[in-house]
Write a protein that binds this DNA or RNA. Structure first.
Lengths: 209, 209
DNA sequence: CCATTTAATGACTTTCGGGTCATTAGATGG
DNA sequence: CCATCTAATGACCCGAAAGTCATTAAATGG
C-alpha cells in the first residue's frame, strides 16, 4: 500500500481556473481586504507562491475573479433575454420567476453583494458590471416596456422608471437574504415574491384602479 | 499680532462626537479596511493617539460610528411614521416622496452602502440595523397594508411582500446612484422615481386591469 | 504664581499579510 | 536512465498601518 501520489503535480493549464474558483469563494466570503491569499491557496490546493505564477498581484487576481463571475452570468443572461415576444402581462411574471430561480441558489447573490461592497475601491469594475449587466438588463426591460406602451398595453410614463419598478423588489429581496439571512421575520421567499410582485406591478395594489 | 491660540486644547467632552463625525466620513468613503486612523485623526483635528483616549480599537470606533449613524436616522424615522392615517392611495406617494427627499442629499446613501458592505465582517451590526431600521420600516408598512386590506382598499396577498413591492424600487434607485453614479443612462432621478413608482404600485402598469 | 493633574501628542513598536526567490521535484526527451 | 527544464514550494522579506507610551503642555486650584 505505498502511496504513489506525488506531493506536487504540474498542471499549468488547469491551475488558473482552479485558483480563480477558490478565490471567488474567499473574496465573496471575506471581501477583498480581508481575504488572505494563503486561504485562497489552501482552498485551491496550492502553495501561495503558485498564485504568483499566474497572477501578478492580489488585485490582479481579484479582477480576474470578478471578470469570471461576470462572464458566467452573462451567458445565463443571454438565454433569458431570448424570450421577448408576447405581452408584458405574460413576460413579467416569467422573467421575475426566472430571476428568482437563478438568485435562489448558487453564488450569484454573494457576488452581487461583493460587487456592491468593492465598487468604491474598484470603480472600473463597477463600470464594467454596469455596462455589461445592469445596463443590459435595464435596457432590455425598458425597450420591452416601451414597445408595450406603443402597443397600448402599458400606460404612459418613463419606461426606464417602469423597469426599476419591475426589478427593484427582486433586488431588494436578494440583498435582504444575503445581508440579513433568511431567519428574519421580514425575509421574503424569492419565489413567492416573484409571483406576487409580478401581479402587483402589473395590476396595482388597489382593488380597482 | 502674537497668536495666542494654543496648539493643543483640552476638550474631553467634545472630542468623541468630533472624532465619530470625522470617522463617519472616512469610513463611508473608504470602507472599514481601507480607512486609515491617521486620516480620521487629521480630519478631526487631532493626533492619532487621541483617538485611543476615547476608543479602544479601530473596530470599536467603527461600531460607535455605525451606532451613531443609526440613531441619527432613527429620529427622522419616528417623524415619518407619525403620519399613518389616511388611505394607502394617499400615504404611499407621500412616504416615497419623503424617502426620496431624505435619500437625495446627505450621508444616508453612503451609510446604507457601508452597512451593506461591512455586514459580513460585522454581523452584529447587520443585526442591529435590521432590528432597528429595516424591520421597523417594513413592519410599519406591512401593518399599513394589512389594515388597508381589512378595509377592502387593497387586494388579497401577503402584506409583507406588498411592502417590498412598495419600497424595493426606491432602494434600488438609491443604490444605483451610490454605486454607479448619476451619469449612467439608466440612473433614476429619485423624485421622479418616487412619483411614478407610487402610481405604478398602486394602479399597475397595465392600461386597464 | 507655582504645583499638580491629565488631555494631547507623535515617534516608536508590533503585527500581519502581500510579495519574493532560492530550492525542490515532477515532467520531458534524447 | 540521466540531463535538462520549469512548475511548484514555503521560508523569508518588507512595507503599511494599528496600537503604545514617555513626554509635553493646557487647565486647575491652592
Amino acid at each position: 500500500m505505498t502511496d504513489t501520489t506525488p506531493k506536487r503535480r504540474r498542471r499549468k493549464d488547469a491551475r488558473p481556473a482552479e485558483i480563480v474558483n477558490a478565490a471567488m469563494d474567499v473574496f465573496v466570503e471575506h471581501g477583498f481586504a480581508n481575504a488572505k491569499l494563503t486561504d485562497v491557496a489552501k482552498r485551491a490546493g496550492v502553495a501561495k507562491g503558485t498564485l504568483y505564477l499566474y497572477f501578478e498581484t492580489k488585485e490582479d487576481l481579484f479582477r480576474a475573479t470578478a471578470r469570471e463571475a461576470l462572464t458566467a452570468n452573462l451567458e445565463a443572461l443571454e438565454q433569458s433575454s431570448a424570450a421577448f415576444n408576447g405581452s408584458i402581462a405574460d413576460l413579467v411574471p416569467m422573467l421575475l420567476k426566472r430571476a428568482a430561480g437563478r438568485m435562489g441558489d448558487g453564488r450569484v447573490p454573494g457576488i452581487v453583494r461583493m460587487v456592491l461592497a468593492e465598487s468604491r475601491a474598484f470603480p472600473d469594475l463597477a463600470r464594467i458590471w454596469h455596462d455589461e449587466v445592469v445596463a443590459r438588463i435595464l435596457g432590455r426591460l425598458t425597450e420591452l416596456v416601451s414597445a408595450a406602451q406603443a402597443g397600448g398595453e402599458v400606460r404612459a410614463g418613463d419606461p426606464g422608471l417602469f423597469a426599476i419598478s419591475i426589478v427593484g423588489p427582486m433586488v431588494l429581496g436578494v440583498l435582504f437574504q444575503e445581508v440579513f439571512g433568511s431567519d428574519s421575520q421580514h425575509a421574503p421567499e424569492l419565489g413567492m415574491l416573484a409571483t406576487q410582485h409580478a401581479e402587483t406591478v402589473l395590476h396595482g395594489l388597489l382593488v380597482r384602479s
